[in-house]
Design a protein around this nucleic acid. Structure first.
Ligand SMILES: [Mn+2]
Ligand SMILES: [Mn+2]
Ligand SMILES: [Zn+2]
Ligand SMILES: [Zn+2]
Lengths: 139, 139
DNA sequence: AGTGTAAATGAGAAGAGTTTTCATTTATAT
DNA sequence: ATATAAATGAAAACTCTTCTCATTTACACT
């Protein structure tokens, strides 16, 4: 029951918020742009404005329910937070997104930040490339 | 003499291109937005349009003379390519940018891409945090 | 040096993605 | 039920960047 998650975040339980959560939970694609969410809502018969979708996603991000990927050149993409941090591989040809966790990289980042005297708050790591399927298609 | 670099890249040797190169070479700040370059040109007395600055920087990027950082939420930032690849640390408080190279991370990225069947074309890694100076100021 | 032609430029319009504004509606505490 | 603060929708605004198109420029070839 996600009404509780909303209340915990200090957010009123509204239809747009519940529906956006529902989309994020039930969608086949884990990573969705605001536009994707907006269209999924329309297909579901919910006429929720795009501005509201942006607002709600941003609030969810603030509440730690959702994380935002800022992909080079493109739209922001959102995904439900499900506990653990991970980074991403992106196919530049078909936009497929894969996830990975690498403790070696995570640790090196901490060391580098410490060496430079930085108090690390976060990091963003994207590996761009051509996925297996797209390599096949290209021959 | 950088006219040669331009010619090698198949670009005509024009005043805007020479001046943008000059700015990038002589500036104190290694990392500059298009706007920064534009303003530096104005201060130098060169009335070169912002659209031209964007065009020239994008062409320089294509020619491998310049690389572009896509920083979360903000403007793109450009820097002269000087041989080796490096990644960046960014202070979220004062926008200071520091550079680092870490072969362990570079290698792990190759391994991860290979494991996922990706042909890696590039990567982007930013460590966000608070720099030493800003930590002092904040107490 | 002069000429032709393709490329480059400047100014402003357009574009994409996202945020803001503001009048109206809604959730929720009383 | 009522009051009130918060949320919403629609459109406008915003920011950064690219495009359009008329004019200018670089440079290959006389
Ligand atoms: Mn993910
Ligand atoms: Mn750099
Ligand atoms: Zn692909
Ligand atoms: Zn700082």
């Amino acid at each position: 029951m996600e009404s509780q998650d909303l209340r915990k975040a200090g957010l009123k339980v509204t239809l747009p918020r519940l529906k956006v959560l529902e989309i994020l939970e039930q969608t086949a694609q884990r990573h969705m742009s605001a536009e994707d969410v907006y269209k999924a809502l329309l297909e579901m018969g919910e006429e929720i404005g795009l501005a509201t979708v942006y607002r709600v996603l941003t609030q969810f991000e603030g509440a730690g329910l959702v994380s935002r990927l800022s992909i080079e050149g493109g739209h922001a993409v959102f995904e439900l937070v499900d506990g653990s941090h991970h980074d991403h591989l992106l196919c530049v040809s078909c936009n497929r997104i894969e996830e990975f966790v690498d403790e070696v990289i995570e640790e090196r980042q901490r060391v580098i930040a410490a060496e430079k005297g930085f108090e690390m708050t976060e990091h963003s790591l994207y590996i761009y490339g051509i996925c297996k399927e797209c390599q096949k298609k290209a021959g």
